[in-house]
């Protein structure tokens, strides 16, 4: 049994594909370093991540796959799920093993690897939509709008373009408290990726995203109250359906919402 190990990065995975072709073999498994090796492996190859090789694989993919398929691949990687590694690795290898001119396997959902990668890609896309829905900004005294998120997958890079387009004349910060980084936009130019050296000292609550009251702009509380009032008033009592509500907004997103009843 042939096993490759890699460093857990996308470049590493792509390098593994490169190596597999260079060595004329198809490993049964791609493991992240530190994972336990299976009992019967006679051939272990350690992949040394190499940007140049990774790039060549990616360029090759671009020639063989549609934009949509490429997007699914990069999006599935942002899932950060360990179970994406092997299907994705196999999917990419299979793409290169196909004869020139054959229909791309990207739409063949009867292939378990393609299906797994696509499914995970859909899941991540779904969560990026949820960020577009449920991000809530609070306005700070200095005019910056702040939102804190903690998504299951690393979807922040996928929504920045949307918020840049929508709120292009206000400065904002969207911070992923789970992954300890955010994007800051000054109201001009491009959003910048930022991290805090001392995260404990940030002026907002890392758990529920609430900005310190003395830093809130003077009318922000009023608009939060207006929103909560609206949220309550729009409900038709004769149609109460808490199950649907919780299906649409899973519990884990509630803590960041302005309309959270406990606030």
């Amino acid at each position: 049994m042939t096993v490759y190990t890699f460093d857990g990065t996308l470049d590493g995975l792509m390098t593994a594909v490169f190596d597999a072709f260079e060595r004329h073999e198809q490993p049964e498994k791609l493991l992240t370093k530190g994972e336990a090796l299976p009992l019967f492996c006679d051939n272990v190859h350690e992949v040394i991540t190499n940007e140049e090789k990774a790039k060549r694989v990616w360029v090759g993919l671009e020639k063989r796959l549609t934009c949509q398929a490429l997007r699914i691949i990069s999006v599935s990687w942002l899932s950060e799920l360990p179970e994406v590694v092997n299907p994705l690795f196999n999917y990419v290898c299979k793409t290169f093993r196909q004869p020139q001119g054959a229909t791309s396997i990207a739409l063949n959902y009867a292939d378990p690897d393609v299906l797994a990668v696509t499914r995970i890609g859909w899941k991540v896309s779904h969560e990026q939509l949820r960020m577009k829905q449920f991000i809530r900004f609070q306005k700070a005294k200095d005019g910056t709008y702040l939102a804190v998120i903690g998504p299951d997958h690393n979807v922040l890079p996928l929504v920045i373009g949307h918020f840049r387009d929508r709120f292009n004349d206000q400065s904002w910060l969207i911070y992923d408290a789970k992954r300890h980084y955010g994007f800051y936009y000054e109201g001009l130019g491009m959003p910048m990726q930022i991290t805090f050296e001392n995260e404990a000292s940030v002026p907002f609550n890392l758990y529920d995203g609430k900005l310190k009251p003395d830093l809130l702009s003077s009318d922000d509380q009023l608009f939060q109250d207006l929103w909560r009032t609206y949220f309550k008033a729009i409900c038709i009592k004769e149609r109460l359906n808490p199950r649907k509500q919780i299906k649409e907004i899973p519990l884990r997103y509630w803590k960041y919402l302005t309309e959270n009843k406990k606030k």
């Binding site: 577009k132 829905q133 449920f134 949220f231 409900c235 038709i236 649907k244 509500q245 907004i249």
Partner: peptide, 10 residues
Amino acid sequence: ICHSFSDDGR
């Protein structure tokens, strides 16, 4: 885009 869902699930 739906930004929230009220208690009636709408």
